[in-house]
Nucleic acid binder design. Structure first.
Lengths: 365, 365
DNA sequence: CTGAAAGCGCTAACAG
DNA sequence: CTGTTAGCGCTTTCAG
């Protein structure tokens, strides 16, 4: 009756191919379940058995297959993050936090960089959805577009339905009941605080430079600027607000233009440190010194801020912590503690602080 | 006899859970094989059938499961990259290239950052091995350690055995027959070229600063420096070589020390741009101007180089292309063209070029 | 052009 | 403490 033997697996496909849990089990003379147990160490196994299995694994050079594991188990041990540009320090620091926290939770990190392509962002989320990432984190400025919102909203629901979750990082949350977390920082407050710093030094003619024209996350900075002005009884002079791109080039050109137009101002609020770097160059070119002739402040506190000469007074955004918090939020639903009362708040807001360096002084005369 | 029906799947676990290919098949009234075919579009399917399936997928909100796909198929559509520090522009640009090329090949990119922890590097490679990444790219300086080499060598073999491959990026290849690719750039040549530039300007007392003490990739820069000197009949003065850390701090401190010791030099070769940034600060502090009093050159041409004042003359390393080339190399074995003669060379070396900016002038007097 | 069925490698009940 | 046995969701022969 030997011929009746089930013989479920016919032949090993490739003798060179990776060993499987079954090979290990056979070699150690145990069942695959036992091997699984020692691999995962989440179940009691006799010491001697464990030793035999470990030995077999070593001898065979066994490497677990994460996909089989993901398929059979429930979690994939992968988190995904989508950023605009990985070489931009703003995103890089957030990514670093995400990476670190992911690793701390025993996960790997799938990083997607859109290079500013809005469509790519959504496509990456879809891919991450296919990967069944335990959490997907979307970083950075969203455009205020109906259709876009609907698309994100939909993805949030899909993720939620598959036990994962969407985390909006550094941007406002969804204004719907879609299952998504938001991890932001106090953009408006930071902007107001540093504007206050300028006001305290005696400046009232402050030129605001940078940031997108369209309504978006970072407009919050402009809002903070305006609030601080108003709170001290000053009006926002439209001539002193120039929004547009976010780069060094923009800061450079606008500063040049402002000077050449004879615009009256004694300080510049750059919407981020990179813009401020451009401002510095233009100022130097026109022979204006910082901070004697004009004071400058930035935002973000990325490395350039302390490299500029004189070092830039700016708003420190807890970028790395932002990334960590995003992972924690995204994973909060998966953790075993599953205490429904200790529930993660859908929106986390981190504080910002003004870092005073050398680029602000009282206005000349 | 209805009771005899096999009924292979008993119950849907969770009505809210993600739809599977089977749900789609049922809804479209076709077999799962057919659904698979339309999803992959790699097999003829009647137009009407295809339409029905696509409709069913849409209605069900079907999202393929990448893990099931990886398990059943052969490729995972994921490449892994291990770097020291993702916020460091040197690595960030390489990662960007890797990401871009991975996406271009229809893959996602798993990014691991070790924060300089050598042990973590190997651990990440193991994790990537578990992920069955189609290629794993190891970036950056390796230490010259026997045991470490053996470990890398072993991983290379494991990857090779599982149809994947290891790519050493920006570091020398394995000196063994292990299946690994190396994608480097001409470190020595670049260093020699920029040293020549200094020599041509009339400098002979050049202080070399930075780079690791231990033999490692970047020692190649020191080697190039020496070669260029020799080629012009100069000896390498040991007093003018200070190796050690790689950061701004190191550049700053060593420059200060050199000046305070009264060391005789008219130019500084910083082992990378970051070190050069530190050099600038120290020079300014001691009232030495660049390039009037001392000329400075760097290496890598990361953004700081052009931000420094005066802009830094440096060696441009094709960082992003390095990343792209690494992915191409790593994937070369998988591509269908599998032409055994058009075989990827195990070692690719990219050229470097000197970028002349404003930090070099003839020596004073 | 389409369907049936056998797995891919692993985990998780469910018995012992 | 350990083994049996279903699947997880998809791809891929092998037959029509």
């Amino acid at each position: 009756m030997a011929a009746e033997t089930p013989r479920p697996r016919a032949k090993r496909r490739d003798p060179e191919a990776a060993r499987t849990i079954r090979d290990v089990a056979a070699r150690a003379g145990v069942s695959t379940a036992t091997v699984s147990r020692v691999v995962n160490g989440n179940y009691p196994v006799a010491a001697s058995t464990r030793a035999a299995v470990e030995r077999a694994m070593r001898e065979l050079g066994y490497v677990a297959n994460a996909h089989a594991r993901a398929l059979a188990g429930s979690t994939t041990r992968v988190v995904g993050i989508v950023v605009n540009e990985i070489v931009d320090p703003f995103f890089a620091y957030i990514a670093r936090g995400v990476q670190a926290e992911a690793v701390a939770s025993g996960r790997l990190c799938l990083v997607c960089s859109t290079q500013g392509d809005q469509a790519a962002e959504l496509k990456f989320v879809d891919l991450l959805l296919e990967q069944r990432a335990d959490a997907v984190i979307l970083v950075g400025g969203a455009v205020e577009d109906k259709e876009y919102f609907a698309a994100v909203d939909h993805r949030a629901r899909q993720l939620g339905a598959s036990g994962s979750s969407l985390v909006l990082c550094g941007r406002p949350g969804l204004a719907s009941d879609a299952p998504a977390y938001a991890v932001e920082y106090d953009n408006t407050g930071g902007a107001a605080a540093i504007t206050d710093h300028l006001l305290n030094a005696g400046h009232t003619r402050i030129l605001y430079l940078g940031g997108p024209t369209a309504l978006s996350t970072t407009t919050a900075r402009l809002r903070g600027f305006e609030q601080a002005l108003r709170a001290r009884g000053h009006e926002l002079d439209p001539a002193l607000v120039r929004t547009g791109a976010f780069g060094r080039q923009f800061g450079y050109e606008q500063t040049l233009r402002a000077i050449d137009e004879g615009l009256d101002f004694t300080a510049i609020f750059a919407a981020n440190d990179i813009v401020a770097a451009g401002v510095y160059v233009a100022l130097r070119e026109r022979g204006r010194s910082v901070p004697a002739d004009v004071s400058v402040v930035g935002y973000d506190d990325v490395p350039v801020a302390s490299e500029l000469q004189p070092a830039l007074t700016t708003v420190r955004v807890p970028l790395e912590e932002l990334g960590r918090a995003a992972v924690r939020a995204g994973l909060s639903g998966l953790e075993k503690n599953a205490d429904p009362f200790a529930h993660q708040r859908p929106v986390t807001t981190l504080g910002t602080v003004v870092v005073v360096r050398d680029s602000v002084a009282p206005p000349p005369r």
